[in-house]
Design a protein around this nucleic acid. Structure first.
Length: 619
RNA sequence: GGUCCGAUAGCUCAGUCGGUAGAGCAAAUGGCUUUUAACCAUUGGGUCCCAGGUUCGAGUCCUGGUCGGAUCACCA
């Protein structure tokens, strides 16, 4: 049988060899080197994790007292013995603890005693092992069995027949530990000469081996590929690192979890019910995107990974769920970028009898509460800029373009330009001119002045005949306004033609009652008053199909069953989709969506592919 | 897909003008019973991403490729 080293799954080097050798020696000492359990003490009320111990009130109190004492001392001066003794007496009153964790470093041994920190992935606690007084534990008998197992068996079997291996010394076990190993210890809490909370180990039990060396404790993992491909190693590294800028990887995902649970709580408190609609669907509906296709053998039909749950959720409003939400994955077979992953987490919810304005109000409240709960405030620092979630601006798409359009005094642009095809085309030319950056040696490129852009743009406008008026507006918005929308901003008054599922504004039939929320130039949410007229919806779908025939493969497909559902009558309603990954990026100051997804999609590992091909060739 | 940057010990990184391959951490051995990125001494450890070229000589220069990152264009 191949070993994992022979098979090339882990690389063999002097580090790994040394660890394997330690493991063999440990096997002789403790028996089972992968024991099944370790029972932790319960001085904090339930299983004492390291985090629960260091957060435990009486412990925190003692730690704060020694900190206060140290603050009064000169630099380098040790805490006074009598202060330490008094506090250590308090810690001893708490009783012995049994805690377990991963060694964060190689042990610092000093002749006949040693210190090392153990970590529960979140917090660390120092343990102190002395050659004199640390007993080792054999895993065949274990902590609890050591005390009770002997008596039970001895009633049935003569004592002489039982082979009880001699207990190893804790020190012998300790000498075979490597950074990253798991151990369980029993002992008492105390403060060291430098005032650090530690466990004086009386019993040491080996729990599991790390055969691979731990990531660098100062630098962590530098290779971004390993960070994302081997997230487990990234999480270990971020918990071991002595210093780090910003949040640790673990903290990022803790914030993500907090935001999500806070959102669920908010929606539930507001009367929403969570549902799960199909991930595999016969039609890729509800959004404009390329889907993943798969095949169901038994039914012999193609199925699509859903690109949005929208139409299913609205079917549920037809069925009588007045407030309904789904918080789960969507799949889109499109590019990967800093803000795109093939699968991403979307919150969608629908509320009967509400319109787009009510939805914007509600969305603001939802975001404010969940951001407050997840981060402790409403202001976040994102790439050096402060984003304030207290205020959300609302501005129409046309006004947003007007605000950020480069202007020159000789050509005053106003709202009327957007209703004039000729003038719109001039603006499109300006947008083309604006998008062209003159390359420079440093590769960054320089932008032209407003005057140059206008002069150049007016020549370019002749190229723009193929654009429809509405798509020109969107193009202008994306070119001029979008990158500038840093603070939370609702863009409202979308052209109806690009919003096939939204209701038109009562005031203007060409405008959809729709908004998109932009933060830091990124679309974070998209909502509207839901179109519930089956006849109009049918016509909008037909229009989309025409666009598809003209070559737009992202135009929506017709969903007859959805039209049938609407025909039963759907209440007026508003709905919204919120991109959770992007929201988490903003809250954790992460520039890439891959940093807020635990296992983002990457190219297949090159080495592994080649080797498995070779193996197949040999067989 | 375009442009720019990178790949050297297990990890993080130096490597000058083209001239014997380096440091810290990690590993091994020894010392040290309250250390804090512990310390001291000794030792081992390299396909300098791959292929080709220039050269007496290439980690270094040139060409091509692989992998990765950043960025721009399309998509939420």
């Amino acid at each position: 049988m191949h070993s994992i080293v022979d098979a090339g799954i882990i690389e063999s080097n002097d580090q790994v060899e040394a660890r394997l050798e330690h493991l063999r020696a440990l096997k002789d000492l403790v028996g089972n080197v992968y024991p099944n359990k370790f029972e932790r003490s319960r001085i904090t009320g339930r299983d004492d994790s390291i985090t629960r111990i260091v957060d435990f009130g009486p412990v925190v109190e003692v730690v704060n007292e020694i900190k206060a004492h140290i603050a009064t001392l000169a630099e380098g001066e040790r805490p006074h013995q009598e202060v330490k003794d008094a506090l250590n007496a308090k810690l001893e009153m708490l009783g012995n603890v049994r805690v377990s964790g991963r060694l964060t470093t190689t042990p610092r041994t000093m002749g006949k005693a040693a210190f090392v920190h153990i970590s529960d992935g979140k917090n660390r606690l120092q343990i102190y092992v002395r050659k004199d007084d640390a007993a080792g534990v054999r895993n065949d008998f274990g902590f609890s069995n050591l005390d009770f197992g002997l008596e039970e068996t001895s009633t049935e079997n003569p004592k002489s027949e039982i082979q009880i291996p001699e207990s190893p010394s804790g020190w012998d076990i300790f000498k075979l530990l490597d950074g990253g190993d798991f151990v369980g210890v029993e002992g008492f809490l105390f403060l060291t000469n430098t005032g650090e909370l530690s466990v004086h180990v009386m019993k040491l039990q080996f729990l599991s081996k790390s055969l691979l060396p731990m990531p660098d404790k100062m630098h962590g993992i530098a290779d971004p590929e390993i960070r994302q491909r081997q997230r487990y190693a990234d999480l270990i590294a971020s918990s071991l690192q002595v210093e780090h800028e910003g949040l640790t990887t673990r903290q990022v995902f803790e914030i993500r979890a907090k935001v999500i649970s806070s959102i669920r709580r908010f929606l539930e408190d507001a009367g929403y019910i969570e549902v799960e609609t199909p991930m595999l669907t016969p039609k890729a509906t509800g959004a404009a995107a390329k889907p993943f296709v798969t095949h169901h053998n038994a039914l012999d039909i193609d199925l699509y990974a859903r690109i949005a749950p929208e139409l299913y959720l609205k079917r549920l409003t037809v069925g009588g769920f007045e407030k309904v939400y789904e918080l789960n994955r969507n799949f889109r077979n499109e590019g990967i970028s800093y803000k795109h992953n093939p699968e991403f987490t979307m919150l969608e919810f629908y509320c009967a009898y509400m319109d787009v304005n009510g939805m914007m109000d509600f969305c603001e409240e939802l975001l404010r509460q969940s951001i407050q709960e997840a981060t402790g405030g409403l202001k976040v620092n994102y790439e050096g800029r402060e984003i304030d979630f207290f205020e959300f601006e609302r501005i129409s798409m046309v006004d947003a373009v007007l605000r950020y359009l480069p202007t020159i005094p000789s050509i005053p642009v106003d709202r009327t330009w957007f209703n004039d095809t000729v003038k719109l085309r001039r603006l499109l030319g300006v947008a083309f001119a604006h998008s062209i950056r003159i390359p420079t040696e440093d590769g960054i490129g320089i932008q032209r002045t407003a005057e140059e852009i206008w002069n150049f743009g007016n020549e370019e406008s002749i190229l723009s005949q193929e654009y429809q008026d509405e798509s020109i507006l969107v193009f202008l918005f994306e070119e001029f306004a979008e990158p500038n929308l840093v603070q939370p901003t609702f863009i409202i008054d979308f052209p109806k033609s690009i919003s096939p599922l939204s209701k038109a504004s009562p005031a203007n039939p060409e405008i959809a009652e729709r908004f998109e929320l932009f933060i830091n130039g990124m679309e974070v949410a998209n909502g509207f008053s839901e179109l519930n007229d089956p006849q109009e919806q049918y016509e909008r779908f037909l229009d989309q199909m025409q666009q598809r025939e003209r070559g737009d493969d992202e135009a929506m497909v017709l969903d007859e069953d959805y039209i049938r559902a609407l025909s039963y009558g759907m209440p007026p309603a508003a709905g919204i989709g919120i991109g959770i990954d992007r929201l988490v990026m903003l809250l954790t100051n992460k520039h890439s969506i891959r940093d807020v997804i635990l296992f983002p999609h990457l190219r297949p590992e090159r080495k592994a592919v080649e080797e498995s091909d070779e193996a197949e060739g040999q067989n």
